[in-house]
Amino acid sequence: MARILAVDDSAAMRQMVGITLTGAGHDVQQAADGAEALEIAERQKFDLVITDVNMPKMDGITLVRELRNRASYRYVPLLVLTTEATLERKQQGKAAGATGWLVKPFNPERLLATIAKVLG
């Protein structure tokens, strides 16, 4: 079981990711944008963060960069789950410090397998 922070501005997406992760026994917290996620992540420690890219207030790439700049998240897996599939966006994510990039439509099994892999 891992403590996971799931970030997406879409309530439908948060629900789908939440059900998938809790169903697999993980402890899930949710945030609706990057700014809210950063605030939560600073108060509490998570084993993994999964974030959307396009969100109000703070986008997912900025969130990844901000988290990587904090000592407590330097080695925490940060996954991106987005509709963005271009090489350019992926490279921005990689440069910001993302661990992996998952393209929507959302696939529960693939997400769980990826999480298992990066958590080792």
Binding site: G93, T99, G100, L102, V103, K104, P105, N107, R110, T114
Partner: peptide, 11 residues
């Protein structure tokens, strides 16, 4: 096939 989900890439 498309609906099943997008690709996964680990950096």
């Amino acid at each position: 096939k498309q609906a099943a989900g997008g690709e996964v890439e680990l950096f």
